[in-house]
């Protein structure tokens, strides 16, 4: 705010020139940073404070005459809300299963492709496609052309394989599985690309030495590749966990959280509560719970990263 205006302030003639330069540099840096930081404060910090404040209110767009400050009531209600605990459980299952699948499949494929002499470029190009697409469009394509019973390709393959036709998104026992598959489909290429890049950067000579010692490929993998790849794997896990925790579009387009609450992750519950049921105050408390949940998991992951 004041930063931009201090640029042209004349500096006293008696000041030490080096210090004068430094002071000028600081003011210049502050002037460059100020607009971006003000924008960030306005678009992230301020709404967050606003969210915390709203979560202490009863705010119902359908019944505005009941609005008012209620202290921690929303949080008390939340702790006794079975739908909240169910959403938390779905979030956990969704996050951990998609992240594990992405890392395992991505690593396996990266090892496979890294060993290829030709054709790596093809994999690199194809892997880009799912990653750059909008999760909403991906969700729509899967929901319609892949999973529709007696129409979609997946259902056709399932019938051809003798597994019969299924209501992939309408059956509560299958719906969560389906949205996990869709998320995994879209983001495994990410793990694949990052791990392939790390594999390609590993030093050759250490493998040379292992070959001379007649180490088996499995031993090479466990003793050399995996430890060297660890930082990259941990990074992929952290990034994918954070994204899975904030996932929204793919589930929203595919099932909308349904059937019932079978695929309702915490994000979706907060959204539905706020914008479908119009209980903004309670929805805000859910969003705060989600934020705390994200921070805890991120904290644990960073601690694991530092360990060892």
């Amino acid at each position: 705010m004041t930063k931009a205006t201090t640029l042209d302030v004349p500096v006293g003639g008696r000041a030490d020139p080096a210090r004068m330069m430094e002071g000028r540099e600081r003011r210049f840096a502050a002037a460059l940073l100020a607009p971006a930081f003000i924008a960030l404060m306005a678009t992230t910090t301020f709404p967050l404070l606003h969210l915390g404040w709203t979560s202490l209110h009863r705010m119902d767009l359908a019944m505005p005459f009941m609005d008012g400050f209620v202290g921690l009531d929303n949080y008390r209600e939340l702790l006794g809300d079975p739908r909240f605990w169910s959403a938390l459980g779905v979030s956990l299952v969704y996050t951990f299963s998609t992240v594990i699948l992405q890392v395992v499949l991505g690593l396996a494929l990266a090892l496979l492709v890294n060993g290829m002499k030709r054709g790596q470029a093809l994999f690199r190009i194809v892997a880009i496609l799912p990653v750059v697409l909008s999760p909403a469009v991906v969700g729509m394509v899967w929901r319609t052309f892949m999973l529709t019973p007696e129409f979609g390709v997946v259902d056709y393959l399932s019938m051809t394989a003798g597994l019969g036709s299924h209501n992939w998104l309408g059956d509560p026992s299958l719906a969560l599985f389906s949205v996990v598959v869709i998320h995994t489909w879209q983001w495994t290429p990410f793990a694949f690309m990052v791990l392939l890049a790390s594999l390609a950067a590993l030093p050759e000579d250490i493998y040379e030495a292992a070959r001379i010692d007649r180490a088996s490929p499995w031993l090479c993998f466990v003793r050399i590749t995996l430890p060297l790849l660890r930082p990259a794997i941990v990074m992929v896990i952290i990034m994918r966990t954070m994204v899975a925790l904030t996932a929204f579009a793919a589930i929203f387009t595919v099932t909308g959280g349904g059937p019932g609450t079978a695929t309702e992750i915490l994000n979706l519950y907060a959204y539905r509560k706020s914008f479908t049921e119009l209980s903004i105050g309670y929805g805000s408390a859910l969003a705060v719970a989600l934020l705390i949940f994200t921070l805890v998991i991120t904290g644990v992951l960073f601690a694991l990263r530092r360990a060892k």
Partner: peptide, 30 residues
């Protein structure tokens, strides 16, 4: 450049990336 509180500002930028979008859309909507 030598920025006052550089480390802190770097962390701030990173932390803003972790916010769940559902969290900020509610206040923004209001």
């Amino acid at each position: 450049l030598r920025v006052p509180g550089k480390k802190w500002s770097g962390f701030y930028v990173l932390a803003t990336q972790m916010l769940p979008p559902v969290g900020i859309i509610i206040p923004y909507f209001l």
